[in-house]
């Protein structure tokens, strides 16, 4: 087991470098960084550009620049942003946004899983019942409606017309606006709408996945055999069937987890949520490559790590998968 983990970690190294090279190459293919940085400034002189080039080390050969980037990466330095927030270090920038993203994502993931798994199971148990039909229809609709649309509708209904929830941001600007003067309540108050939208967006595919996977498992002989042994319906469903049905769900969550810290770019943008996802969108719009690269590197690491965790979870759930 430990041998397997070490081997997997070693295997991650070339993968990580491969992705780094790709991302680095892509950022340079987009154009001269100095040109991108100064494109909007008509008064910039050629000397100033040269100075910038030397300052950022862009006059050195490309391979050298890459090695410097990697070396800095090992020292937790992702370089400085070109323009966002006056060229703050990318690590500082991410550090400022990551907590808000983490908060939102974790709440969304937790809520959607606790709701979707039981619903999927019940829906599968009562296949073709009225409940099942309404669950599948709602879920299908849920997967069809784009998140930004759902977000905008939610804002129009709950903020504009009903005025119950704030339409954007993570905090009130002034402490006087805090509900009951409480900071925590203010945070929850702001989280409600984006979390609900994110939960709903995540909910629908998981419900459908759990349902179809459960239906597949319930057809198996070992379920009939468990019933024939006199086990209670609860044991049959929640022990014998669920353990088998969860395998594809774990894959899905594992894939999703890789992107958790990258945020939900669309949801965060719609709700103007100060998270990494919105930062990513902003950086892309302004071609701020150090930020884009920094976030991509983070997503890469998270994804690789999440894949490893997923594989380990598999082995725990399904003994047929041997880790050797």
């Amino acid at each position: 087991m430990i041998k397997y983990i070490i081997r997997r970690l070693l295997y991650l190294i070339p993968l990580f470098f491969g992705i780094l090279i790709l991302v680095f190459a892509a950022s340079r293919m987009a154009g001269d960084p100095v040109q991108l940085m100064t494109g909007l400034n008509p008064h910039i002189t050629a000397e100033a550009k040269q100075q910038l080039r030397e300052y950022y080390g862009l006059d050195k050969p490309l391979y050298y620049q890459f090695l410097v980037y990697v070396w800095k990466l090992f020292n937790v330095d992702l370089g400085n942003a070109y323009a966002i927030r006056g060229g703050l270090p990318v690590t500082t920038l991410i550090g400022q946004y990551i907590w808000e993203t983490f908060k939102l994502q974790l709440a969304g993931l937790f809520l959607s899983l606790t709701i979707s798994i039981p619903i999927g199971i019940i829906s599968a148990k009562k296949q073709y019942s009225k409940l099942d039909v309404s669950v599948t229809t709602t879920s299908l609709l849920g997967t069809c409606i784009p998140v930004f649309y759902m977000g905008i509708i939610a804002i129009i209904v709950f903020s504009y017309y009903l005025g119950w929830l704030p339409p954007f941001g993570a905090h009130s600007l002034f402490p006087e606006r805090y509900p009951f003067g409480n900071y925590m309540l203010d945070e929850l108050w702001h989280m409600a709408l984006p979390t609900a939208v994110l939960t709903f967006a995540l909910l629908a595919p998981v419900v459908l996945l759990v349902r179809s996977s459960m239906l597949e498992v319930l057809r198996q002989d070992y379920i009939l055999a468990a019933r024939a042994s006199g086990l209670s319906e609860r044991t049959v469903i929640y022990k014998h069937a669920l353990r088998n049905a969860l395998i594809p769900v774990v894959t899905y969550i594992g894939l999703y987890f890789g992107g958790v810290l990258a945020g939900a770019p669309i949801t965060e943008t719609v709700f103007n949520w100060p998270g990494v996802g919105r930062l990513f969108v902003e950086a892309t719009r302004r071609l701020d490559f150090p930020v884009i690269m920094g976030i991509t590197v983070m997503i890469t690491m998270m994804t690789l790590f999440a894949n490893l965790i997923t594989d380990l979870t598999y082995a725990y759930i399904d003994p047929r998968i041997r880790l050797e």
Partner: peptide, 20 residues
């Protein structure tokens, strides 16, 4: 079920739960 009347299935490969 299982106590008074027991059942043996046709295919042993599928009648035992693979994860236990």
């Amino acid at each position: 079920r299982g106590k008074e009347i027991a059942y043996i299935f046709q295919d042993p490969a599928t009648s035992l739960n693979p994860v236990f």
